[in-house]
């Protein structure tokens, strides 16, 4: 039976024995298992909750100035209007495009781009304002597509929206 007394001599003796040449000293070992368990849990959590966003880009549009009437210069008097009409709520993908004055009725936005490029090479310049008129039920996708065709692809400088409704 050992007593709980502190024996300094005994500790010194043990220390001396450990440092004695020929006796291998034990190195301290950290028990890493628990930490690795937690780390893997965290890793799985972050992998599962991560959702990668697709790459987004932007198109720059002009908004009409509020409160003051825009003075119609000779260039602004000649403007191009793109009308987008939807077939109603039943078929949200369906739309018709009409480009005034007399530029045509493109069936899709690729054709719209071709029409607008031809118009720009003809009697219109890149400064000609292009106004997009869309029905209330036209989906945003079609509006942005028309915008993309006019501003980014055909290269018109000032493309805007008509906000009559």
């Amino acid at each position: 039976m050992q007593t709980a007394y502190h024996h300094p001599g005994e500790h010194e003796g043990q220390a001396r024995q450990r440092n004695r040449p020929g006796v291998r000293s034990t190195s301290m070992q950290l028990n890493l298992t628990a930490m690795i368990d937690v780390v893997f849990q965290l890793l799985i959590y972050f992998i599962v909750t991560a959702n990668f966003a697709l790459d987004e880009g932007l198109l720059t549009a002009q908004l009409p100035e509020r409160g003051q009437g825009v003075a119609a210069t000779s260039e602004e008097a000649r403007r191009i209007d793109i009308h987008i009409t939807s077939f109603g709520a039943g078929d949200p993908l369906a739309y018709t495009i009409r480009v005034e004055p007399g530029i045509g009725r493109p069936r899709n936005f690729t054709e719209l781009r071709t029409h607008l490029q031809q118009a720009k090479q003809g009697e219109y310049t890149e400064e000609t304002p292009v106004i997009i008129h869309a029905d209330a039920t036209v989906r945003w996708q079609h509006v942005v597509n028309a915008f993309n065709a006019a501003a980014e692809q055909a290269g018109f400088r000032s493309v805007g929206f008509a906000m009559e409704n």
Binding site: L54, G57, L58, L63, E65, R66, A136, W140, F161, N165
Partner: peptide
Amino acid sequence: LFSEAVPVLGAIAEAEIQTVNLVAY
């Protein structure tokens, strides 16, 4: 629907911001 965007674009124009950027893929 485009009709939902119209008042928002109007409110942005009201703040005297003439240029907006539309985000797409």
